[in-house]
Design a protein around this nucleic acid. Sequence first.
DNA 1: TTGTAGGCGTTATCAA
DNA 2: TTGATAACGCCTACAA
Lengths: 333, 333
Amino acid sequence: MLSDVAKLAGVSTATVSRVYNEPDKVSANVRERVEHAALTLNWFPNAAGRALASTRSHIAGIIIPTLDDQVFASQVSGMQAAFAARGITLVLGCSNYDPAQALMQVRAMLARGVEAMAVVGEAHPAELFDALRRYRVPYAVTYAYREGSPHTCIGFDNHAAYVEITEHLIGLGHRSFAVCIQPTRDNDRVQARVAGIRATLERHGLAVRPEHMFEGESTMGFGRRSLRTIWQAPCERPTAIICGNDHIALGVLREAEELAIAIPGELSVTGFDDLEIAKEMRPALTTMRVDTYEIGRLTAQHLLDSLDGKRPLNGQKVNALLQLRQSTGPSAR
Amino acid sequence: MLSDVAKLAGVSTATVSRVYNEPDKVSANVRERVEHAALTLNWFPNAAGRALASTRSHIAGIIIPTLDDQVFASQVSGMQAAFAARGITLVLGCSNYDPAQALMQVRAMLARGVEAMAVVGEAHPAELFDALRRYRVPYAVTYAYREGSPHTCIGFDNHAAYVEITEHLIGLGHRSFAVCIQPTRDNDRVQARVAGIRATLERHGLAVRPEHMFEGESTMGFGRRSLRTIWQAPCERPTAIICGNDHIALGVLREAEELAIAIPGELSVTGFDDLEIAKEMRPALTTMRVDTYEIGRLTAQHLLDSLDGKRPLNGQKVNALLQLRQSTGPSAR
DNA sequence: TTGTAGGCGTTATCAA
DNA sequence: TTGATAACGCCTACAA
């Protein structure tokens, strides 16, 4: 431990500590001796002791719904890299889309003494944000950005993004829509997307009929089943399907091939996320692209600035960019 | 802090501590009083103090190459869930396929006092494993399993898996092969795969000609470019392409469509990982499936057992299952 | 079952 | 620039 190093180097423990925390307050000569001693003793500072004495844990936390979704994984990746460059360890919690689990994870992280936190979305129990504020832990809501949110948001505007998608389709002459989307429960991002679709349609005097509204798991299978159901139903078929993400849209595309539905001739399809395969599919998928790694990087940067007392944490909007490709075209009707 | 709770509850600090660490050594009456006090004071134990006093950090670590690859993300996910259920926080480090970064991350985790560690693969500096042993931190090498490895391995046999793929193709009559694989540098898993292919071919008096050996990034783009190069070259074309994973294989499939190469009539293609889309592609991709979430879960379980002193850490082999689909068929020649 | 008291490994304050 | 020493918040013999 530290005192052994001090003894070997023939200095006090305070000096050893300084060598690692305020190196330029130590003479080069002494510093060298200490570093040598540390090396031969194979010593490095113990984080717990350090945290206790300095009341700084050098830990930050992030809560995401799941690592199974690439968009969250890459956000974690971006934060991790940015924090690591500043000697801060990122600890990860998965809520599995369950607010109660998110709250538990945040509490556990508070107990660990996290210095900053990021949580995906704002659909969380009030206690979660209360706890963060009570312990004066700077935090940011990521992935989603909403004007008027009480939180620091770093992400994109889910509502606006789906307004853009819907307007694109309406501009192509579509008037009859189906929607295939992930579970909306406890998910403000998905809710905002649906709201964006509805509001836009309404503005044009349109609406999604209930039998064309599908909510289910984020898989190709869900997309496939939904399209099959739509096509088998006796009611009028939609000319466009708006999907909650690329997985679902790819399933729709795949099933359309099976059912010999011409795309975009007979049916237009849109996704979200712009997975690598989206542009490689035939027809290539019209979708929206968001740089989630960048969201992570930005979030870490904001939190670090806030820890440095540089500036009050304020939100930042990231753009979602529409990638027009072959899966959308003029309405046949 | 703890002493405030003790005061409010009218007990000693030791008793408060017991309530959280050995609850059944405290009478129900006293326990209730303490819990009430803690609640009103909104107190929970500070992890740094706890770690320092008990010399148990309740932290475990995992080093993966990157979160961008689903297989590693889901392994993290599996470990996380299993550890969380036991009150252990998982901290994550990404090496970006760089041994030096992996070593740094391990050192940082040792400083944090990790109680157990997992690292993907065994292609790491000797210092890394030395450090782990010196600090008596139980660890496991994951994702890869190799007979005779000096480490506890929990994963599948990359070599054997590619022997199986190669044998499958040879059984179909193929004699001329191309290989498209991820960077082999510092990557024992990929090296084992290539070795498996080579050894199997050699056993049949065959080999991959150098101009049919491609090494590049794990993307569809790399697969596409590779196939195009192969097809444009003046030399004899292979009848089968073995890819290092599904991304690359999907790219090959996609480019084959572009070049109007009949699959599997003219060319057989294999992948690895069995992404959801692999079975949905037309033609569906022949590939191998590994349950990486399970690898993570098993690893956590082994490490927990080892911490409990239950049994010496010994390896465990997970199966990679060949998924025979439409992208492989009899050789035309 | 409960309390006392010393120590876990470092940092921070103050003096020298 | 360096050193002595008291925290930091909790756990754990040991004693009662």
